[in-house]
């Protein structure tokens, strides 16, 4: 019982620290911690399968992706200073109010219905698997399609960069500005660093 609340607190704290963090990498690390905590919560709740899944996919794959990108972007100290500049305390007020209201509503809703004890029973991977390949089969298939779409999109969006850049530079210098064009080409004319 107490482990649930403790883990919960850890998760909340980690998330809070994450959003307050100035450094991107630090934030990411906090986020990973948060996810791990959530995974533990899942386990406590009797869902070992998703706990494992959380760790493997969420914390493992997605966060790693994030870290790769951050490292690729090579933000550095300048970014941290910029973040500080951006994060003014006054900006926290509005969203905080909103979130507070939301929290209040959710709590209210929850307290209305009866709250059962956690970890009533464990739902193992076998059941999940059966359900997945049973009634939710189509969901699985769609998810796979979605993933494929994401793959293609990410591939496409990421891949054009080096080649098109060169071509863009040559093209644009040769023909002047292209009419309309897509986002990529139009942006190629801008000088770097302009906000």
């Amino acid at each position: 019982m107490s482990s649930f609340y403790l883990t919960g607190a850890v998760a909340v704290a980690a998330t809070l620290l994450m959003i307050l963090s100035l450094n991107a990498v630090h934030a990411l690390l906090y986020l990973i911690v948060s996810f791990l905590a959530v995974a533990v919560i899942f386990y406590i709740l009797g869902a070992p399968f998703v706990a494992a899944l959380e760790v493997i996919v969420y914390a493992g794959a997605i966060m790693v992706l994030f870290i790769f990108v951050v490292m690729m972007l090579n933000l550095g100290r300048r970014a941290a200073a910029q973040e500080r500049a951006w994060l003014r305390p006054a900006m926290w007020i509005g969203p905080s109010i909103l979130a507070a209201i939301l929290l209040g509503e959710v709590v209210y809703l929850l307290t209305r219905a009866d709250v059962p004890a956690p970890a009533a029973q464990s739902v193992g991977p076998k059941e999940v698997g059966l359900v997945l390949f049973g009634p939710y089969l189509i969901g699985v298939e769609l998810t796979s399609v979605l993933l494929m779409g994401a793959l293609v999109a990410a591939y496409h969006l990421g891949w054009h960069r080096p080649k098109l850049e060169k071509a863009n530079v040559d093209d644009s210098r040769a023909r002047g500005a292209s009419p309309g064009g897509d986002f990529v080409r139009a942006g190629a004319d801008r000088s770097p660093g302009t906000p």
Partner: peptide
């Protein structure tokens, strides 16, 4: 996003 959030909150509040 803020707008969305506000709207959602409002709706929730209404329903609740």
């Amino acid at each position: 996003a803020a707008g969305l959030a506000a709207g959602t909150i409002f709706f929730l509040g209404w329903v609740v």
